[in-house]
């Protein structure tokens, strides 16, 4: 089950080869990832799915350089990030990766605008004003820019997180259960935006989710079970994803 999954003809944004991640030592060791090889094309919206404990979050953490790996390699673009030090990894995340987490995406001390521009400021870069306006208007955040996170609804907070992830035009956006804490309408808004950013802006998005409806917004679904690749679905629908999951015994 270590087939390299890729689409010929398109540039590869992120690729993992024989990825191994082990938690604990000796008898208590758990192989969270047991040799996963997978690649993600640029300009594609991919969902990673799997039952609880399947290793899907671990896979994302390793792909994004948030966690170290015990074997194999991860490439983002042409960069092998497996052997980068903490400083280089931090710079890579800052300059080339966008994040949207399930919850606690924003710093409570900063306004929405400051949160959106945080990554750019850390990199010492200026925001592209036109691009910022596009994102802010698309997400309908214009009126909320000077509010602090506590004054925003859950959906608004997640949209601010999306804006922050996209404003620096990263090579890839990782989204970890971005709709996990939202009602279905707010969730749909966030997913619509992520899909739109891929279709219209040619952004690469990799999303971890356990929700078949959320997964159906993606171009492709990668299934993970017991730390290994368990198949994939292209042009998924909620029903096809549900069926595939049922097949996995989730």
């Amino acid at each position: 089950m270590s087939a390299v999954v890729s689409q010929l003809g398109t540039r590869t944004a992120v690729a993992a080869r024989d990825l191994v991640k082990v938690y604990g030592k000796g008898d208590t060791a758990v192989r969270a990832l047991a040799g996963v090889s997978v690649s993600f094309a640029a300009g594609e919206f991919t969902a990673i799915m799997g039952p609880s404990g399947s290793g899907k979050s671990t896979l994302m953490h390793c792909l994004a350089g948030l966690d170290t790996v015990d074997g194999g390699s991860v490439h983002i673009g042409d960069t092998d990030i497996t052997h980068l030090g903490d400083r280089e990894l931090t710079r890579l995340r800052r300059d080339r990766i966008g994040f949207v987490f399930q919850a606690f995406n924003l710093l409570p001390t900063l306004t929405a605008r400051q949160n959106i521009l945080l990554g750019l400021e850390l990199a010492g870069r200026k925001a592209d004003q036109a691009w910022l306006d596009t994102i802010v208007d698309t997400l309908g955040l214009r009126e909320r820019l000077d509010h602090r996170p506590t004054e925003l609804s859950g959906g608004q907070q997640q949209r601010v997180a999306c804006a922050r992830a996209l404003v620096a035009r990263p090579d890839v956006v990782f989204a970890d259960e971005p709709t996990g804490n939202l009602d279905s309408r707010s969730g749909a808004e966030v997913l619509d935006f992520l899909r739109m950013s891929v279709r219209r802006l040619n952004q690469t998005v990799i999303m971890v989710t356990h929700d078949p409806v959320a997964a159906s917004y993606a171009d492709r679904v990668v299934l993970i079970a017991d730390g290994a690749l368990a198949g994939e679905i292209t042009q998924p629908t909620a029903d096809s994803v549900l069926a595939a999951l049922a097949h996995l015994g989730a």
Partner: peptide, 16 residues
Amino acid sequence: TRESALLRALGLTRGQ
């Protein structure tokens, strides 16, 4: 703790 982690994920170095 989580806030610091978020900052680190977004590109704040250990030194920063």
